[in-house]
Simulated scan of single mutants.
Amino acid sequence: MADAHARITGKTGVFMVTRGPGAANAMVALHTAWQDSVPLVLFVGLIPRAETYRESFQEFDLNGWFGTTTKGVFQIEHAERIPEIVSRAFALARTGRPGPVVIGLPEDMLRDRVQAQAVEPIRTLQSVPGQDAIAQLEHLLAIALKPLVILGGGGWTPQATRQIQHWAERYELPVAVDFNCMDLIDHRSPSYIGSLGYGRSQIMADALQNADVVIGIGSPLGDIVTDSWALLPVQGHAAKLLTVVPDSDCLGAMHPQALRIIADMPGFASALATLTPSSPVRWGDRTRGLREAGERYRQPPNLGGDIDLNIIFEHLQRSLPDDAIGTWGAGNHAGWA
């Protein structure tokens, strides 16, 4: 629920668990938030401070469990530091690449009585790319014949998705989406051509392999979108690459020759809001062809039988309102979207 709250509202999700099995069950949610760049703060109850290193009931190493799949792990030993550490954790969850943060709460610390002042939330400014970065982007488009834009990652806002879509439409750019990122562009847009990753069509694989300029906005062009880099090798490919990521240490960005712009998605999108082509683009027909091929691929074949999921989902597509939210038992099922 905390993960869903964060994705829907754009705010930081919060949840609390007990030590032992509660913390163990939270691992799936934390790993999902880490992979999908979702800001979460988890509070975990811990054993009393005086009982550490004695194998007390459900004692475990908080950092050992969560240190490799979160942005930070904190344990509050002194109650007067609660405002400071909680404020820091919420800021860390939201800045740069969003993600989960864990705060440990020793049982006896929660009963301490202290005088503590509330603190203001740590506020950060939007990360906007400089003019040099935008000039590099425009240079790549000026030399491109077969560009491809791939949207992915987290930290998006509704306004940012609209600004990126309008920019792509002004430039007649073909736009694909990364795995689990179906909602980053309106599928009725003339720029939208389909999704990469699990369940992708051969049309999409060819579009990526044949592109001479690939622009990943939020997507580091990692393993799923590139079929474990088979479609876009780390070394030895001919395409010019540009990735826009919120952190310089984005682990999925494996292409050393890629131009990397460090910016959050709202900041980057705002920088593109007023850009327009300086001359007629040369890839408009290709974009329209990819769009038409993608639309044909999305037409469900009649599988026959008593229950045809293709027909069911086609009916849902026609019947549900535009703002309907679908939930899935596993990420792979999102291919039905």
Rank of each mutant, 00 (worst) to 15 (best):
A23W: 06
A23I: 03
N25L: 07
N25K: 01
A26P: 02
A26K: 02
M27Y: 09
M27R: 14
M27Q: 15
V28W: 15
L30A: 14
L30D: 10
L30M: 15
A33M: 15
Q35M: 14
D36I: 08
D36V: 07
D36T: 08
S37W: 12
V38E: 06
V38T: 15
P39M: 09
P39I: 13
L40S: 09
V41H: 09
F43V: 09
V44T: 11
V44S: 08
V44E: 05
L46I: 07
L46G: 08
I47T: 14
P48M: 05
R49C: 06
R49S: 14
R49P: 02
E51V: 12
R54L: 13
R54Q: 14
E59H: 05
F60N: 01
F60V: 00
L62K: 01
L62D: 01
N63A: 01
G64K: 00
G67K: 01
T69W: 02
T70Y: 03
K71A: 06
K71R: 15
V73Y: 02
V73T: 12
F74R: 07
F74P: 03
F74H: 14
Q75C: 11
H78C: 08
H78N: 14
A79L: 08
P83K: 05
E84P: 01
E84C: 01
I85D: 06
S87W: 00
R88E: 11
A89C: 04
F90K: 05
A91Y: 10
L92W: 09
A93D: 03
A93S: 13
T95C: 12
P98N: 10
G99V: 11
G99W: 11
G99T: 09
G99A: 09
P100H: 09
V101F: 08
V102D: 06
L105C: 15
E107H: 12
E107Q: 14
R111Y: 14
R111M: 12
D112S: 14
D112P: 05
R113W: 08
R113N: 08
R113Q: 11
V114K: 11
Q115L: 13
Q115N: 14
A116R: 15
Q117V: 07
Q117T: 09
A118T: 13
V119N: 03
E120R: 12
E120S: 11
P121Y: 00
I122C: 02
T124N: 06
T124C: 06
L125R: 13
L125Y: 04
L125P: 01
L125A: 12
Q126G: 03
Q126T: 10
V128P: 01
Q131S: 10
A133R: 04
I134E: 02
L137H: 08
E138G: 00
E138T: 08
H139G: 03
H139W: 06
L140Q: 09
A142Y: 06
A142C: 03
I143N: 04
L145M: 05
P147T: 11
P147Y: 15
L148Q: 11
L148C: 10
V149Y: 04
V149H: 04
V149A: 03
I150K: 08
I150N: 07
I150P: 05
L151H: 04
G152W: 05
G152D: 06
G154V: 09
G155H: 13
